[in-house]
Nucleic acid binder design. Structure first.
Length: 309
DNA sequence: AAGACGAAAGTGGTTGA
DNA sequence: TCAACAACTTTCGTCTT
């Protein structure tokens, strides 16, 4: 993490302490954790030392993209009637043209619609371009394997986005994805997600609570101090295997709740639960385990006394 | 009155025979 | 394919602040 230039200001709390997290490529506020932007390096990824090297390394054309139905690549065979000079071969071109349209109609028509849907959802969720690309890639493989058949196109798009978020290390909850797809219910998205991952052989790595802490904390407007405390607690908890087998969102929520108590920035269980998309009961269960196994009782008592003063 | 607590019953997914 | 199982949810009554 390094300091960023001082001109930048956090739109959330006005702090000018903007820090950079190079692993995630995020710029975030050092005070409240608000994420200002996801940085992507658009600069040239090679250097040119002489004529020969520059000719070798340079790549022509627009970059491939999964956010266009044809990846920005397709060419079209002209209509036979337009190619007057080669009248003789007219029959051949007619056939080629026919095949082109046949291939186009099946998969491409679907991709046209789904790409529009993907873009719409990505903009609602304000996903970084890289995640959108990943989602497009996943959808494309799913579609070409015929996995969309029997499922709604939307649910597969939603599942692809959910998977892409996790792969890129910026997981969203199913609720959040669901908000961008009002017509779908949460369970269908999860189901489709699992199905697509299984069929495509995408390894589903369980998400870590760490991935959620920053985002949840920002929504709860917790200070950086509390976030650090939460991460510290989480680290201890992980080492003692309190977190294994537990839902990562519940763990993240409980950790933040405890940290908020200790740092005197109390949030109610309800508030934390809503942000994390779990119930108060789950927070209570995790919370109990944390306190028991990490002996946090005294620390909470201390901070309570402090507040009472 | 709001928040925290915990018991009990229900849900959906995983696992192993 | 079915039952057992763990995690989580929903609901609700009770205690605490």
């Amino acid at each position: 993490m390094g300091k960023k230039d001082s001109k930048m200001k956090c739109p959330e709390c006005g702090s000018t302490r903007i820090i950079e997290d190079p692993h995630r490529g995020e710029l975030l506020c050092g005070r409240c954790g608000y994420i200002l932007e996801m940085k992507v390096d658009f600069s040239q990824d090679w250097r040119e030392f002489d004529q020969r090297l520059s000719a070798e390394k340079r790549r022509a054309g627009a970059p491939l993209t999964y956010t266009k139905p044809d990846m920005g690549l397709s060419t079209k065979v002209g209509k036979a009637s337009e190619i007057e000079k080669i009248q003789k071969r007219r029959g051949v071109y007619k056939r080629i043209e026919k095949w082109q349209s046949r291939i186009y109609t099946a998969l491409e028509r679907n991709l046209k619609l789904s790409t529009a849907e993907l873009r719409r959802a990505a903009s609602i969720l304000s996903l970084p371009k890289s995640v959108e690309e990943e989602a497009g890639k996943i959808y494309r493989s799913a579609a070409s394997k015929g996995l969309v058949r029997g499922r709604s196109m939307e649910s597969v798009v939603a599942g692809s986005i959910y998977a892409a978020c996790r792969i890129c290390g910026v997981p969203r909850t199913l609720e959040e994805i669901g908000k961008a797809f009002p017509s779908l219910d949460k369970k269908d998205i999860g189901k489709t997600y699992r199905f697509v991952c299984r069929e495509l052989g995408i390894r589903i790595l369980p998400t870590s609570p760490v991935d959620y802490i920053n985002r949840f904390a920002a929504e709860l407007k917790l200070s950086q101090r509390t976030v650090s405390k939460a991460l510290e607690i989480l680290d201890k908890a992980t080492k003692r295997e309190i977190t294994s087998g537990r839902g990562p969102m519940g763990v993240a929520a409980a950790t933040l709740y405890v940290a908020s108590l200790i740092c005197g920035e109390k949030r109610t269980q309800r508030e934390v639960a809503d942000v994390a998309g779990v119930t108060e009961v789950t927070i209570r269960n995790r919370y109990k385990e944390l306190i028991e196994k990490l002996n946090l009782e005294e620390e909470i008592k201390k901070s309570k006394e402090k507040i009472a003063q």
